[in-house]
Amino acid sequence: MRTMINWIIRLAGGLIVSTLLWIAFIYYQLENYAEPDQVYLMGTPFAYGFVFLFLCGVVFFVIAFFRMRQHPQKLRRTFLVFASLYLVASPLVILAFDNYLLVTPKGIAYNTLFSLDDAKVKRWRDIDQVVLDYDYERLPFNDDRHLRLKYMVYFKDNTMIDLNGYNSPLYKQTEFEALHRTILNNKIRVKTMRPLPPDVTPDSFIYKMYHAK
């Protein structure tokens, strides 16, 4: 019983420390990439999830080092495993720190996961057009297909970003709607690649995005 309690205490303590470090990571990202009058800055789900798992691993390895300090052979083997994982994972943490979407009154910047340079804010007038499209997807454990919005922003320098990819930094419907309103308010051309299927209802998110004025 005492062993179980000690294990739970160590687990809870490790998760608390990891969460605090993760919050510090997010705060430092916000501070590092902040722009004057910034509207929105957020990293992506993969980046935040990976960093949290990485921090959990580091914290629990450190706890393990303290527990094994009286056993040099175990400590050495554990440290070698930790060093190998750290060398592989730490570059991804750096890339995750640089993976974000920034929206300001002047424009937008999206730094993708494998981009090594800081993204420069592109002004709204630098956007050539926004193209809306969709993909069919099957839900897990379900045979039904549903539509996934593709929100592709084309810039005048011939670059393009899809703001609703699987690693999208926009998490909520309200965030997409707010960005889309800004696009429309700046008189940026919005086109639809193809019409929606007839069974799409007017109260659905993708219908509202397609028909926003």
Rank of each mutant, 00 (worst) to 15 (best):
R125S: 13
K122N: 10
R76N: 15
L55M: 07
Y207S: 05
L85I: 12
I206V: 11
L147D: 07
A47M: 04
Y136V: 02
L75K: 11
V131E: 15
M68A: 15
F82E: 07
A24K: 05
V121T: 15
L21E: 10
L163F: 00
I183Y: 08
W124H: 00
R10S: 07
V200Q: 05
F79W: 10
G57S: 13
W124S: 02
T201Y: 06
M160Q: 10
A24V: 08
G13E: 13
F141H: 12
G14M: 04
A212D: 04
T182G: 08
K208M: 08
A47T: 10
A96K: 04
V190D: 03
V62K: 11
Y166D: 15
I188W: 01
R69V: 08
T112D: 08
I94H: 06
F66H: 00
V131C: 10
F82S: 07
I23R: 09
T3D: 13
R125Q: 15
N158A: 11
R181E: 12
W7H: 15
Y136A: 02
V88F: 14
W124G: 02
I94K: 14
F46A: 08
I23A: 14
H211A: 07
G107F: 13
V130N: 07
G14C: 06
V130G: 08
L21D: 06
A47S: 15
Y210L: 00
A12D: 03
Q38I: 06
E137H: 09
F155H: 03
L11F: 14
N99R: 02
T104L: 06
I94P: 01
G13S: 10
K208N: 12
Q129L: 06
Y86E: 01
T3K: 12
F97T: 02
T44D: 09
Y40M: 13
I94E: 12
F25K: 04
S115K: 12
Q173R: 14
D199V: 02
N186Y: 03
Y166I: 03
K187D: 15
L116C: 01
S115I: 02
V93F: 05
F25Y: 12
V81A: 07
D128Q: 09
E137C: 01
F79K: 06
T78D: 02
S84G: 09
N99Y: 04
D143W: 09
F54P: 13
S18K: 04
K187C: 04
I161F: 01
Y48H: 04
N99M: 00
D126V: 00
V190S: 01
V51Y: 02
A34K: 14
Q38G: 11
D143Q: 13
N142D: 15
L55P: 09
F205E: 12
F50C: 02
V93M: 12
K156Q: 10
F205N: 11
G165Y: 07
Y207T: 03
Q70M: 09
L55R: 01
Q129F: 14
D203M: 07
T112A: 11
D203A: 03
N158L: 13
Y27H: 10
T112W: 00
A12L: 12
F79R: 09
G43V: 02
R189Q: 08
A83R: 04
L101Y: 10
F65H: 06
Y40I: 00
P169S: 09
L116A: 01
R181Q: 09
N167Q: 07
R2I: 11
L149A: 09
V103M: 11
E137P: 00
Y166Q: 13
D203H: 14
M1P: 15
K191S: 11
Y171M: 12
L55D: 06
I16S: 08
D157K: 08
K120S: 14
G57P: 00
K208E: 11
